[in-house]
Design a protein around this nucleic acid. Structure first.
Lengths: 196, 196
DNA sequence: AGCTAACCGGAACAACGTCCCAGAATGCCC
DNA sequence: GGGCATTCTGGGACGTTGTTCCGGTTAGCT
């Protein structure tokens, strides 16, 4: 049996130099194109910017979602770590929740098209979906639970639904000056408050 | 006043029988396909269902938005007329606003993909956008103004932004059982309330 | 019935995502 | 340093969808 490619224990063979070079070029090109043309830019554009063929993208990042995850991984990780930090930061859990949601919104609205893709049910984006949920849902759940425990908000709000709602509101922005996603998300969070 | 079919210069000739027949067939086919495959179903599917060629669709409905508007015109008109009726219905303006928004949400979530298309900034959908705004924005503005005047909600909420927000929340549904657009819209409307 | 203009259907073109394959680059082993 | 198996590359082929063009057809008027 050749377990060398199935067994994660085994030292991964180092990739070839050209493969590493292309992967790096692709990440940089993708980041640049995502900024200028949004995360749904044609694959061919990214390939051209990186100076590689289209198949090379599919080899390194089988789905578009994999590429997006790779480009934004650092920022998502930072977001995940900001949750507990805000909660321990001394303010009330509701304030921490609001601040964290603000960070989430800032992240989404500055990535052209990312929020829209997060809402999409195209199976192509399932890995993206899975990654965001896996990484951010526990954080949001913890913030929500803390705010419930402190009596500031009603209980019963599902964290998944809340995050999807925030994502939906961010997806509607599209650079429209009459549409302020932050404001609407603020209304949504305000709507969670327990009436007193 | 009912010379809307007439051109000031020249009397508009009535359409030919085959053209009228095809237009009717197209509307029925589009309505059926929209239900089963969403409003972004391939043009060819609708043409096939109606038994016509693709060019015939473009001749009758230059953009997809025109077709969507034609299919849902009646329901949008009903929605527009429900606003003043609810306001005059005896309950408080805030209740009327909530009920009207509920009707709007019901309309959107039962039309597969319509909310998503309403959020899209693809110029192809501009006529759809324009129609909805033209027809529903005044209604929403009036409801909002009434609720402000009665002191139930804070002032300063732009009706356009609110409707876009509701549309965004509906667009995120996608048949997901853990995502209840009505619930989130309820939070949004609750967030408008003036704290007492 | 015959004519004209409106109308129709399908073919053609373009953009995009996806996948395949002949060949080149790489790194190991001698 | 050089041969060779393996990995990787790049461009092109294929399918899908939106959109437009063109020769043939049909409705309606005289």
């Amino acid at each position: 049996m050749n377990d060398d490619e199935r067994n994660p224990e085994r030292a991964a063979r180092p990739k070839r130099a050209d493969a590493r070079r292309n992967e790096k070029a692709l990440l940089e090109a993708a980041a640049a194109v995502f900024v200028s043309s949004g995360v749904e830019a044609p694959i061919r554009d990214i390939a051209a910017k990186a100076g590689v063929g289209t198949a090379t993208i599919y080899r390194h990042f089988p789905t578009r979602a994999d590429l997006i995850v790779a480009v934004y991984r650092h920022q998502v990780e930072a977001l995940a770590e900001a949750g507990p930090a805000l909660l321990a930061g001394g303010e009330t859990p509701h304030a921490a929740l609001r601040q964290w949601i603000d960070l989430f919104v800032d992240f989404l609205v500055t990535k052209h098209g990312l929020a829209a893709v997060l809402q999409s049910d195209d199976p192509c984006f399932d890995p993206l979906h899975a990654y965001f949920l896996d990484r951010l849902l526990p954080v949001c759940t913890r913030l929500l639970d803390a705010a419930v425990a402190s009596g500031e908000i009603r209980s019963g709000q599902d964290a998944y639904e809340l995050m999807r709602g925030v994502g939906s509101l961010c997806a509607g922005a599209g650079g429209n000056p009459r549409y302020d996603a932050r404001h609407l998300v603020g209304l949504l969070i305000a709507g969670l408050r327990r009436p007193h």
